[in-house]
Amino acid sequence: MNEKIAIATVGMVFLLMVSIASASMLTYYGKAIGIAEVSEPTFYAYPESIEDHRLYKLGINEPSSTSDEISFIDSEFIGFTTDSLGIASFYPATYSFHIKAKVESPPRNLSLELQIHDSSGNLQNEICKAKVTVDSSEYKTYEASCSADSLALAESDSFYWRVEGLTTASVDYSVMIDGDMRIKVEALG
């Protein structure tokens, strides 16, 4: 009789263990957990023009695999635009511009400005701007940065990178659009 009780005790313990272990699975068939560290995006310039010869594509996170040279004079500017971002806000950040440029009569200043445009291409907000001095008639990479507070956008808005000569005289600038021409975002705080 005692042996039976002992066997029953062991059986009871086994059943309790199995039942307790499975009780936490009442609603789930399975559970998987993973952790990802998310970093800021980078916007890359693409040589493919949109609409006209002065507007080009600005892609997210994917560098351009092709390259092309674009020239313009002081009375003109070129722009790079993203698709609609589908976001309502953007955190305070520093925007670092990387551009490969040359000018026929150095030194000359180039204005680099990040803007918010609506779906029709109209300016909604100037985010921030920086200036680089192009000091060579051969291609060199220049870097500049600016910071902005948090942004409010409509979901159809896009980022627009405006590159413009700051000299009054008619000077020819050239920009090499390749996988290195980009805006790197770094969150503030």
């Binding site: 068939y29 998987a32 993973g34 990802a36 560290e37 998310v38 995006p41 806000s89």
Partner: peptide, 25 residues
């Protein structure tokens, strides 16, 4: 797809599978 404006940080992703149209607690 991560929103371009997602604040840089660590994010935890948890997957659960159910077979009920309504999920009882």
């Amino acid at each position: 797809t991560f929103n371009p404006a997602l604040i840089p940080s660590d994010y935890t992703f948890e997957v659960g599978l159910f077979n009920e149209l309504r999920v009882p607690r």
